[in-house]
Design a protein around this nucleic acid. Structure first.
Lengths: 252, 252
DNA sequence: AAGGTACATGCAGAACCGTGCAAGAACAGG
DNA sequence: CCTGTTCTTGCACGGTTCTGCATGTACCTT
């Protein structure tokens, strides 16, 4: 048994079983406990495991259930997200808004898609860390805890320095007359700033938002390229928007 | 069952069930009540649970998952983090670096502490979203996926617009001659930029980093206010640093 | 107040750890 | 092919830590 092979075995064991007992492993592999202990010591020094009395534990016990804790988006948002992913130009750049629908888009992005994602949401960044070919650019600023995104003057200013092919915007209200609205003035301003930096802006609108309006206007219909919704083709509000000349993409 | 594993189990149990009955747990795990009691005593001494007659309760019913979150950081980092939290001036501002040790600091911050936290790490932001009285400012820029922080020219530039009372810096190498080092040039530059914006800079150095050096220098000893480590008072490297005039805070 | 339960402490045996050392394997250079 | 060096491995040893039991005390319940 090669030393490196043994190390890999230990790491694998740790991931599978969640713990390592030096004595047991030594017996299994038919070598001395000293060697196992030495390996564990080395791994711990590299931060790959946590050495404890009797064996070792993963650095973070949470890794075991990591996969399970990814909450699934409601069906509607997932449909909208899938359709939105289709608009992202491979090799191009996209500005992703914050919010749960945009997060669904991030999660729906193919893992090996090569593109630049610009966002003011730390959550979106976290969701895309494991996309090796995606370039991430984070817009900083004061954090609005309510929606966990950067807003305010600094964030708007940071947005002035980027541009992109596409902007995917989440809103809370989509109304034929009121236009696109959201519940916070700062957020509305930020969304405007983001939209202004992209060639095309599409709005992510799961069906429950159609026909509703919030307090602060984000954009009038004239300044968005289109709307993505999971509402059916017969939906009254959607049809009204089509009548106004809005390009509506029916997802699902 | 490993001793450390048992401790984690207890913490998890406490978080899930809200209480621990020593007798039951001992029977469940098939070991003596003495061991369980000893563990509970130790946990209570670290402030991770409240010892009561018959078992244990969470330190505060409000923060049921506090202990569980603390548990994900290895012991050394947790100690360093606890000591670092003591340096944060209430009502003041602190620049928090990225990395697992800094994350441990964020998690160790009292939930109702009123202060301004400036960081280039989306992960840190996420960890502090549930601190209602903490003001968060995120420094944006190109995301380095390896360590999940914003780096590069834009991030350094963003840092120029902030200042703080304290900067808590994580590094990968702490060496008496080589100074503070890290494995990436961009990150090193970013750390320098952060440090320059704070009145005081303290380095978070869990014991396994003492005496090691990485490729890129972050700062020489003259430019840091002090170092926080969980190494013992007799540690050779720590003592050498004290001899060099570095203020070393022994957490423990 | 009394009985039972939980607790802290001390102790002994066992398990575990780090270190030093020597034997052997792998390897580079002559 | 031989030789010296380096690295790895297993063993021995002294020290540390853990564990269960016994004992006397503190606490809760009735």
């Amino acid at each position: 048994m090669l030393a490196a092979e043994r190390r890999d075995h230990l790491i694998g064991l740790l991931a599978r079983e969640g713990k390592i007992v030096a004595k047991e492993v030594a017996a299994d592999l038919g070598l001395s406990e000293d060697s196992v202990r030495r390996d564990l010591r080395d791994l711990a020094a590299e931060g790959l495991c946590q050495r404890v009395y009797g064996g070792a534990l993963p650095v973070s016990p949470a890794v075991v259930d990591y996969g399970a804790r990814q909450a699934v988006a409601p069906d509607g948002k997932r449909k909208v997200a899938s359709a939105a992913v289709g608009l992202v130009p491979p090799g191009g750049s996209v500005i992703l808004d914050g919010g749960t629908t945009a997060l669904a888009v991030a999660r729906a992005l193919p893992k090996d898609l090569g593109c630049t994602v610009i966002t003011h949401s730390p959550t979106i960044v976290a969701a895309l860390l494991d996309h090796p070919r995606a370039e991430l650019f984070l817009l900083g600023g004061r954090i609005f805890k309510h929606s966990a995104v950067a807003c305010g003057a600094a964030a708007v200013e940071a947005a002035q320095n980027v541009s992109a092919d596409l902007c995917l915007l989440g809103v809370t209200g989509v109304h034929p007359e009121a236009g696109l609205t959201t519940g916070d003035a700062e957020e509305a301003a930020m969304k405007r700033a983001l939209s202004a930096r992209a060639a095309d802006t599409y709005v992510l609108a799961s069906s429950e938002k159609l026909g509703t309006a919030s307090q602060f206007r984000v954009l009038p219909w004239g300044e968005v390229s289109g709307l993505i919704t999971d509402a059916g083709r017969g939906d009254a509000v959607a049809e009204e928007l089509v009548g106004l000349g809005v390009e509506v993409l029916f997802a699902g």
